[in-house]
Design a protein around this nucleic acid. Structure first.
Lengths: 109, 109
DNA sequence: CGCTCATATCGTAATTTTACGATATTGGCG
DNA sequence: CGCCAATATCGTAAAATTACGATATGAGCG
C-alpha cells in the first residue's frame, strides 16, 4: 500500500514544490553565487515587485531552504545549508531501486 | 549576473515542479515500489478520476521522469531511470558553494 | 465489423498560485 | 518624538493548476 506520504516525504515534496518555481529557483542561484546574504538586492535583480519577492522568500524560508535574519533595519537572507543538505541526501538516496548505483560511484572521482 | 536560467536549470526546475505535487510524488513512489510497470493500477490506488491520473502521468512523462510504452491494449509506465539519474546528479552537484562536501563522502560508506 | 477495455484528450469548474499596490511594522537617525 | 529606509502582510485580480465528466482513439476479440 503506498497510501499517503510520510512526514519526510511531505517535507521533501514541499521543498521540491518551492524549488519548482523558476523565480524561486533563480533566487536560490543568486543567493548561492553571492556568498553573502542579500535581501533588497534580490528585488532589484528580479523584474518583480518588492511584495512579490518577499512572498517568494517566505515560501523558500518555510520550506527550509533559506534562512532570514533581521539585521538592523533590513533582513539578511542566506541559504539554509542544513536544509539543502537534507534535500540532497534525500534525493541521493531516493528511489534506490530505480537507478543503478553507478552514478554514486561516478560522483566520487 | 544571475539573469535567466539556462536550459539545464529550466529542465531541472520543471522536474522539481512535477515532483512538487504530492499526487505525482506518490505516483513515483508507487512506480518505484512496484518494479514492474503499472498503469490502470495507479488509478485504483489513488482517489482520483482516471482522466486526472492520466494528466499527472503526462506531466511526469513530459518532465522526463517516467516513460510510457503502449503494450497491446494498455499503456505501461515505468520510471525513466536515465532522467532520474540526471536529476540526482544535478542535485548532487547543485549549489556546490553552499554545503560542505562531507555529505558526498558519507554517501560512499 | 461491432463491442469492450484501457487511455488520452477536451471542455470546463473549483482551487491554488502568482503578482501587484496599498498599508502595516520595525530599526535607526536627527 | 517624527521621519525614512527596508520589509512584511493584506486584499484582490489575473493566471495557472487540478479535478471531473464526457468524448475520442486504438487494440484486441467474438
Amino acid at each position: 500500500m503506498s497510501g499517503r506520504l510520510n512526514s519526510d516525504q511531505k517535507r521533501l515534496a514541499r521543498m521540491l514544490k518551492a524549488l519548482g518555481n523558476p523565480i524561486r529557483f533563480q533566487i536560490m542561484e543568486h543567493l548561492a553565487s553571492h556568498q553573502t546574504c542579500i535581501t533588497n538586492d534580490i528585488v532589484h535583480v528580479l523584474p518583480l515587485a518588492q511584495s512579490t519577492v518577499s512572498q517568494h522568500l517566505k515560501v523558500l524560508r518555510e520550506a527550509g531552504l533559506i534562512r532570514g535574519e533581521i539585521e538592523g533595519p533590513a533582513t539578511c537572507y542566506c541559504l539554509d545549508s542544513e536544509g539543502i543538505q537534507w534535500l540532497k541526501d534525500q534525493i541521493g538516496s531516493w528511489l534506490p531501486g530505480c537507478c543503478s548505483s553507478e552514478s554514486q560511484l561516478i560522483q566520487l572521482k
